[in-house]
Simulated assay, not measured.
Amino acid sequence: MKIAGHTMGTPELTVLEAAKLFSEIGMDAIEIIYQEGYKSALHESTTDEEILELKRELKKLGIEASGIVSYASDYNQPDENRRKAAIRDCRRCIEIAWMLGAHFIRIYGGTFLEGDENFDEKRKILVSTMRMLADEAKEKNVALVLENHFNTMTTGPQITYDIVSEIDRDNVGILYDQANIGFLSGEDYRKCIQIQRDKIFYVHVKDFKFKAEGRKFSAGSVTHVNEEERAVVTRIVGEGILPWKEIIYNLHEVGYDGYLSLEYERRWHPMDIPEAAVGMAKSAAYLREILGTLEG
């Protein structure tokens, strides 16, 4: 397994500055956000020439691009304008991934907020849209990985597996995120990995603690949780409640050998955790220690 740094952890830095930091603290790769309005991201205005220059700089630093993070989620919407906007976003992410030599695009499995209706109809639209985009991505040697994520149609392990299976493309898999599952439903990692085992293409690593026992999770958007909604606080990996050593061992046992991407949530919760040079460095060291015992 390889360790990647996610640019969610570096809101104070540009993408290239984040890449330099990740290289310095011994990471293998960088996962890059694609979204307007965020410093540590690629944007709609980023040119092909700038992307190719970034590729050259990453090569000098000795790290690779593991994936691109799309923030589009309306792939399942009956409203054609909303759906087409998400498709345009994903297509640009596919192009960027191809130019950088990255092989994964993080995908939100549609928009489905609490109280939304017509699940079956929107699921059919999501499956159809993903099939189309997967066929385009395959030409670029890129895979689409649907994340276990709140306010989407791919929240828990079983529904995510079922939808990815229905899409039925060999370059569509699951982005396994036990932290998201942990504060949504609390399902055990062994159950989650067992259900999803043959479709886990990518893994996000983060950690948390609950603010108070029994507090219910809620969020008003797909992308993040507002401060007044939070049921958890984010933590440096290894200092929260998730048993990452056991999770990684279990992933190894089912044959996973891909990226462990540190989704250090400083972008959303800087009050919880120190800057990346401290917190991501400690998290990466913790993961390397686990991987060292695994290899031994």
Score class of each variant (00 low, 15 high):
2 K>T: 10
8 M>T: 11
19 A>D: 04
19 A>L: 02
20 K>A: 09
30 I>S: 01
32 I>F: 04
33 I>Q: 05
36 E>H: 12
38 Y>V: 14
43 H>P: 06
45 S>F: 13
47 T>M: 03
53 E>V: 15
54 L>I: 08
54 L>H: 04
55 K>V: 03
59 K>S: 15
61 L>T: 03
62 G>H: 06
69 V>F: 09
72 A>R: 03
76 N>E: 07
79 D>A: 03
84 K>G: 08
86 A>T: 10
88 R>V: 12
94 I>M: 06
95 E>L: 08
95 E>K: 13
95 E>T: 09
96 I>H: 09
97 A>F: 02
109 G>T: 08
121 E>G: 13
121 E>V: 12
123 R>P: 08
123 R>L: 04
124 K>E: 15
129 T>G: 11
132 M>P: 14
133 L>M: 05
135 D>K: 14
138 K>F: 15
140 K>H: 07
150 F>L: 12
153 M>A: 14
158 Q>G: 14
166 E>C: 01
169 R>I: 03
170 D>C: 09
171 N>Y: 03
173 G>H: 09
174 I>Y: 01
178 Q>M: 10
179 A>I: 07
183 F>N: 02
187 E>P: 10
187 E>M: 11
193 I>Q: 02
196 Q>C: 14
198 D>P: 07
199 K>D: 00
199 K>E: 04
200 I>G: 03
205 V>R: 04
212 A>P: 06
215 R>F: 10
219 A>C: 03
229 E>H: 05
230 R>G: 01
238 G>A: 06
242 L>D: 02
244 W>N: 01
249 Y>H: 11
257 D>E: 14
263 E>I: 04
265 E>Q: 11
268 W>Y: 09
268 W>T: 08
273 I>Q: 03
277 A>K: 15
283 S>V: 03
285 A>L: 14
285 A>T: 13
286 Y>H: 10
287 L>I: 07
294 L>E: 06
296 G>C: 12
